[in-house]
């Protein structure tokens, strides 16, 4: 296992990088819509939602790029995990309050049209899957093809 872990971690790292890049990339083109998606959770005043909605896509893309490069993997994985936990908490709270929204995870979601059911369960399971990837990296941050390994003088 000592030889395979770095490769498993590499896969987890690239997978999590892809998640962030796609999630951020789909939102970055329309920051007003991103703000509305955040606001649909009805957790903060609109002015705050606006700032969160604008910063979030850029943050996600930056996290994705850092993971792709493999720089300070344990830290980026930790930040990823914190973000994912916040997202899951948000979805759970929306579910508990009976809001009819698209989670906005991979879109500038917002409120759903009448008649369509939100897929909160699926969204949470998916986020838990991503959280598992972050968990692997927190536990075994050493991976191949990473800036970290070059800086640490590993091969």
């Amino acid at each position: 296992m000592e030889r395979t872990w770095p490769w498993i971690s590499t896969a987890a790292r690239l997978g999590l990088a892809a998640v962030w890049l796609v999630a951020g990339g789909l939102k970055v083109g329309d920051l007003a819509a991103s703000a509305r998606a955040v606001h649909a959770y009805q957790l903060m005043p609109y002015d705050i939602s606006k700032i969160v909605g604008a910063a979030q896509p850029f943050l996600e893309i930056a996290l994705g790029l850092l993971l792709l490069a493999g720089l300070a993997v344990r830290l980026t994985a930790g930040i990823s995990a914190v973000l994912l936990v916040i997202f899951i908490a948000g979805i759970v709270s929306a579910w508990a309050r009976g809001l009819q929204i698209d989670c906005g995870c991979f879109s500038t979601g917002g409120e759903l049209a009448a008649g369509s059911d939100p897929a909160y369960g699926v969204d949470i399971l998916r986020d838990l899957g991503f959280l598992a990837l972050a968990g692997i990296l927190l536990w075994r941050p050493r991976s191949r093809l990473s800036v970290d390994s070059v800086l640490m003088g590993e091969r």
């Binding site: 604008a54 910063a55 979030q56 896509p57 850029f58 943050l59 930056a62 996290l63 850092l66 930040i79």
Partner: peptide
């Protein structure tokens, strides 16, 4: 990393 993430958020806010 912290600097990069902070800057990314700032870019979003500025945009």
């Amino acid at each position: 990393v912290v600097l990069v993430l902070f800057l990314a958020g700032l870019v979003g806010y500025t945009v």
